[in-house]
Structures are given as structure tokens and as C-alpha cells.
Design a protein around this nucleic acid. Structure first.
Ligand SMILES: [Mn+2]
Ligand SMILES: [Mn+2]
Ligand SMILES: [Mn+2]
Ligand SMILES: [Mn+2]
Lengths: 217, 217
DNA sequence: CAGGAGTTTTAGGCATGGCTAAATATGGCA
DNA sequence: TGCCATATTTAGCCATGCCTAAAACTCCTG
């Protein structure tokens, strides 16, 4: 019996685990800029450092990652394309779950993380059409188009933002508790923060990305 | 990293393969009544007889199947409940793919067979609501309710049906080619066959189940 | 009612993707 | 500049779910 993984676009079959590693390498560098090490991957994925090293080696052999020994992991251009395909699936699925199935934005991440490896290309393109080609997911993360293009808003983390008015651009969906705190505080993408005041903890405010607004003069 | 399988209702986790075996044991006995042997399972699933024997043994140990040595495989009551849960997921997913995503009825089976192991209980119940609690999938197969109840229409295979008018009740979705031949011939569930005439091959007509109509006198 | 064809189970492997424990490399600090 | 804490890789295992080949069983046929 074949494993329950849909092929995705281009290249040879890639396991669900392989897809998750690529997506995670991309995700760790999307908003923040810190070196992606095998240790960081292991921590994010909840596997041992040894397991991350082993999988990274396989993905290097397949030409999807670069990895100087003891150095930082990075995507090759084909690896980046594959990663963006997984990201596209993930974010379209999250959008579907919220808009069509009535999920809360704090309920979608895990479901999408499973489905992203299972739906076919046809499914994804039909979903995209049904949803009207959305530009961002419920958390404000941009959805790559079918060709893998996306533009990332210039934004700063709320805990490092200058005082003054700002617009919420994105909230990380990594922690459901944080998402609930944000919606309770009205901090949804598009919301305006008047003076930078909010009731979030320091850790929670590190999950919120805002675009500071020039003050009118 | 955990395997991409959603738990489903009740009992300990069951792998996607395990779920497929249970579903297949159920399916082989749903419309036809032939003994389900490890060999029949192997043939249906495209695995070796040895593999089927091994998996059946595991499912017997978990209390989901009965299997006298060299005898027929059958579902225990808890095995049947688990199987019906998988069948419910499969058929609701097929209905969704046709009704909401515009798939053809010959395109849905494989996609649903992957997704049925990945969607959560919440997803399934939301889908059921979205679709208005459908009673049958696009092929006429009944959809068990959340409690695992379903009623099977009394029907006979078209190649064994008496001459005379009949209503198409169900077409097996096992073969996409057959489904295309049936829709080309207008043999969709609910269609009326006037005198039993149709352009199907013998093998194809064995996939169609009809309810003979009493003639008016 | 014995033989044998066909079916089923057992035995022994393999690939994948995890794990722990041990070895090795790095890089900051004394 | 050398040492050591920390990070990373290597080595050796394990579980799952497949495989092929061989052994064992069933049951039809002559
Ligand atoms: Mn997400
Ligand atoms: Mn998201
Ligand atoms: Mn089907
Ligand atoms: Mn069906």
C-alpha cells in the first residue's frame, strides 16, 4: 500500500517528513533572520538533533538543501520552490477551514499541517478558485501563487516596534493560546493599534508583526 | 515527527494502513456476499498475501478482526464501528469533492482514500453540516451517520437483474473507466433503465446495482 | 481417500524515519 | 593560545509495513 502522500508539484516524490523539513527551513527564515541549524530544526519539529541531521543529509543528497558541516541549513532554488508549494497548500487549507468550515483561527494550524501532504494539486487549485485566490491566510501570512511568487509585507515585531500607531499585519500561528489572547484583545490582521498599548505578555507580543504608521503632521 | 494520521473516533490510534484494511473488509462484504480471505484482501489492496496475513494478525490482536486460521476474516463489533467511521469519512469527502470542488465522479475515489485518514473528527462533522447531511455519496453508496448507522438499499447487480424496468441505485467507484462509461450511458444513481438495455460490457455491468421496478398491470 | 493444485502462513529481509549514547567539532573566554 | 561548554554528527537500535521464497495447510478431483 502506498504512503498517503500526494506528490505535489515537480520532482520525485517527497515524503511528508521531507516536505515538513523544507517548509520549516523556509518558515524559520520567513519573518525572522536567524541561522537555521539542525538544532533549530530539531527543536521546531520536536525530533532529536540526530534525526534532524539525518533528514537534512537526505535532502542535501536530493539537491533540496545546502548544508556545510556544522553550518547553517539553507534551501537550494529547487528546495525553495518545493517549500513554497507546501506553504501554499498549508495557507490555502487554513483559509478554507476558517472561511468554509467555520474553524477558529486557533484551530486550523494542526489540521492544515496534516492535510498539506495529502491533498492533490487539483484539490489545491480548486480550493484556490473556490476561495477567490486569497492573498493571505487567516493569520496574515501571505499565500504564494501557483508559480511560487509571494511578497512579504515589511513589518516589525510588536515587542520591538517603535511607540506610536501601527497596523497589525500578521500573528504567528505557532501557539494557539497566543492566538486566543490576540483575538480577545482585538489584534487581528488589519486592526489598528493606537499607541502601541496592548494586554499581551512579552512572549505573546513577539508573535505579532506590525507596520508602524507615519503620524500625520 | 508523528505520522500524518488523524485519530478518528474512539480506541487507540490506528495507522492509515490499519484503517484501510478494516474499511476493505467491510467493503468487500457490503454489496456482495463472498468470504473475505487474506488473499482477497491482498488482491483488493495490491499487497502480497503475506503482507495481508501480517496486518490481519495485528488487527486480530487489537480486537478489531476475527480470523480462524486459513478461514475468513470478519469484523468484530468494535472493528465494524471503526470501519464504518472510515467509510463515513470516505463518502462525505467524495461528496464534497463533487459538490463543492467540481470533481467528476470518476476523479474522487483516490483523493478521498488518502484524505479519509488525515481529516479530523471536527473536519468530518463540519463537512457533513456544510453538505446538509447527505444520505449517499456520488456513486449511490450510503453514508453512515455519526453513530455508524446506515441502511443499504435492496438491489441486484445489473448483469444478474431480471429483464424489465429498473432504477440505478449504485455504481461501484472501483474503476474510473467504468464510471465514465456509465455517465456516458446516462446510468447515474436514480436513472431509469427501461428494458434492461444498456451499452456496457459484461464486466462493467457487474459494477452497476439496480432495483427492479414492478411493472404496472 | 490419496494426490496435488492452489491458498495461506511463516521465515527472513529491506526502507523509512524515528530514538539514545558516544564521539567529534566549534567558538567564546580565561 | 588553550580549554571547555555546547552544538553537531556518527553509531547502533527499533517499529512499521511492505517484499520474496519456502513451508504448511485445504479441499477438489480422480
Ligand atoms: Mn499554520
Ligand atoms: Mn497560518
Ligand atoms: Mn470511493
Ligand atoms: Mn463512492
Amino acid at each position: 500500500m502506498s504512503p498517503g502522500v500526494a506528490g505535489g508539484t515537480g520532482g520525485a516524490e517527497l515524503s511528508a517528513s521531507g516536505q515538513t523539513y523544507l517548509k520549516t527551513v523556509y518558515g524559520l527564515g520567513e519573518w525572522d533572520t536567524e541561522a537555521v541549524t539542525t538544532g533549530a530544526l530539531a527543536a521546531k519539529l520536536g525530533v532529536s538533533p540526530a534525526s534532524a541531521t539525518a533528514m537534512v543529509r537526505k535532502l542535501v543528497e536530493r539537491g533540496l538543501l545546502d548544508h556545510p558541516p556544522y553550518g547553517a541549513v539553507s534551501l537550494t532554488s529547487t528546495g525553495r520552490a518545493r517549500a513554497l508549494g507546501v506553504v501554499r497548500r498549508h495557507r490555502l487549507l487554513e483559509t478554507f477551514l476558517v472561511r468554509e468550515l467555520g474553524y477558529g483561527w486557533d484551530q486550523v494550524h494542526e489540521e492544515a499541517a496534516r492535510l498539506e501532504h495529502t491533498v492533490s494539486d487539483l484539490f489545491v487549485e480548486r480550493l484556490d478558485r473556490l476561495l477567490g485566490h486569497p492573498a493571505a491566510d487567516p493569520h496574515g501570512d501571505p499565500i504564494p501563487d501557483a508559480a511560487g511568487h509571494l511578497r512579504l509585507p515589511a513589518a516589525v515585531r510588536l515587542d520591538r516596534a517603535p511607540a506610536g500607531p501601527a497596523v497589525v499585519v500578521r500573528v504567528s500561528d505557532a501557539n494557539a493560546e497566543t492566538l486566543r489572547a490576540c483575538s480577545a484583545a482585538g489584534l487581528l490582521p488589519g486592526a489598528t493599534l493606537d499607541a502601541g498599548a496592548h494586554p499581551l505578555t512579552a512572549a505573546q507580543s513577539a508573535a505579532v508583526w506590525v507596520e508602524p504608521q507615519e503620524t500625520l503632521r
